[in-house]
Design a protein around this nucleic acid. Sequence first.
DNA 1: CACCGTTACTGAACCGGATAAGTAACCTGA
DNA 2: TCAGGTTACTTATCCGGTTCAGTAACGGTG
Lengths: 339, 339
Amino acid sequence: MKRPTIADIARRAGVSKGAVSYALNGQPGVSEATRRRVLAIAEEIGWTPNSAARALSGATANAVGLALRRPARVLGLEPFYMELISGLEGELATHSYALMLQLVGDSESEIGVYRRWWGERRVDGVLICDLRVDDARVKVLEELRLPAVVVGGPDGVGSLANVWSDDAGALAETVEYLVALGHRRLAHVAGLPHLRHTRARSEAFEQVTRRLGLEVAITETTDYTGEQGAHATRRLLSASPRPTAVIYDNDIMAIAGLSVAQEMGMSVPADLSIVAFDDSPLCQLVHPPLTALTRDIAAYGALAAQQLLKVIGGKHPPASVQTASARLTPRGSTARPAS
Amino acid sequence: MKRPTIADIARRAGVSKGAVSYALNGQPGVSEATRRRVLAIAEEIGWTPNSAARALSGATANAVGLALRRPARVLGLEPFYMELISGLEGELATHSYALMLQLVGDSESEIGVYRRWWGERRVDGVLICDLRVDDARVKVLEELRLPAVVVGGPDGVGSLANVWSDDAGALAETVEYLVALGHRRLAHVAGLPHLRHTRARSEAFEQVTRRLGLEVAITETTDYTGEQGAHATRRLLSASPRPTAVIYDNDIMAIAGLSVAQEMGMSVPADLSIVAFDDSPLCQLVHPPLTALTRDIAAYGALAAQQLLKVIGGKHPPASVQTASARLTPRGSTARPAS
DNA sequence: CACCGTTACTGAACCGGATAAGTAACCTGA
DNA sequence: TCAGGTTACTTATCCGGTTCAGTAACGGTG
């Protein structure tokens, strides 16, 4: 038994295919009575539009794409992406847009995915994350004229739309908070240095610590994995004088750092204060619970989806929109330094 | 400038649309010389097939769907799904299949998503995870005749294909290992009781502990969140006599349990041994690192994708395929009991 | 040399919708 | 009462592929 088409509805209703199409799409051209009859029949025989046929005539795929580049195993561990996707979908679902997801290994294959998606008309637009310094994707998307929204920025996004949160400000605020507690020796365990948002945070750390004239302000760069977070922490805590507070660029590294500190016989927060960028239930599981920079990532995703749908709609020019910044959630891992 | 179509290629090559289609798809009906000429022109003008047009005539969407039901915030935290997706895609990409992802809140909307995807011909098949007791999805998918593979089973999958791993066996092996170490009082912190795999594990726990004649064998059920894992651990460790070893159904709860034990002044593994079902880098971050049941989840996903493609192809009848079972990776969180 | 089978195509129909253009029937107002 | 406009449709075409039914040309065979 085949799926019903508008031709089936037309036959049953005794009208033409065209009339059915108008009726189903709320277009003028049919009487209210006919429209109701058509809708009732469609409901009755369980008609659903064939998205391929729609896409073929309407030229809109009703889908957007998200390609995630997966460095090492980081992706699976960070709740960030799943929460982002969750937020995206809340918005997409209300507009009957589907999400195509693809995990890629490197920049070229990511660009290849965009070309293919766009060429095959599988998506109407894409979202890109983890903006890099000199990001090749921006130019390609501009050239392809593929509607896109960058989750990140606002620098380096070219003519693309973007949504961003003020990581630099949040980091500065965190430093000020730690300094207010009495800390004078801080460290920042940063992520991959070629990512824009990492750079923004590192620069903010440098500027604020210089402005406040801190004794020690070290930045360690990592690849966001727990291993490197642990390793960086070992280096930091072996130095002399050692920092009394560390800001980690994600929660995984913060937890690894906490573990290392305890293993080295230090008490958190008495001997060492710890702050994690990006909060997650993970931060509340460990002992002591971690002070973290909390963001509403789902809302971030929803905003990104909204912007993308606007760009696809073509009504508005690509814009740069800021979402709420991360705010500090103090928990048990931060306190006045011991001495 | 519009995208080139096969009509453009036909015009340039001086042949008909039909011949171009044969040439591009490797079908017989054109000479080798013409085929090469057509392929060269396609390459030159940058032609890519319009997937909607293909889907419309060929009736294959070249996409599969994955709807994940997200209880609370568990999804984002567990690396399981991302690793599964990663494995799926490795296999799908080689066959130029795309993955449609949708997060849903409850069973009805999940079923709604399948109906819509299938009705709209957006997907050629779907994967379902987290099989439940009396799972409504199975019947619906059978009725819809939507090609599907269950990630789980082998019980309760009806006539659908499935891939599964022997969780019961792995759990039994773990119990035997702990007993061999000298433990006589065990506990199992299980997940959601209406999930099939949780039930299989719980039943295995019950059977093996009875067979071995253990003094204490308690099962606590939770919703897989760290919070409930912590809560269950508090209850277990407050009991008298308290268990000397606990098996947790995921890594998040195991970490929460570890934290609670330490908070209650117990030393792991001296006073309490801990095992986590499903390994992840998280298990190696904490101190002591957690003994875990390691599975190659990506391989599991790849196998699921393979099976789904087979079912879609329609050549093979739906089969039940077993993947490698989880194997115990002993780390620092398990040892002989103190006394 | 007539006949048959193969090869290499062409032309047209088709998939399921969207939509522009055409057409009756009806209403309105001068 | 009739031109002019609106309403409620129908008809036909298009989107970009796939595929089936022809067909002309060619080679081999008895």
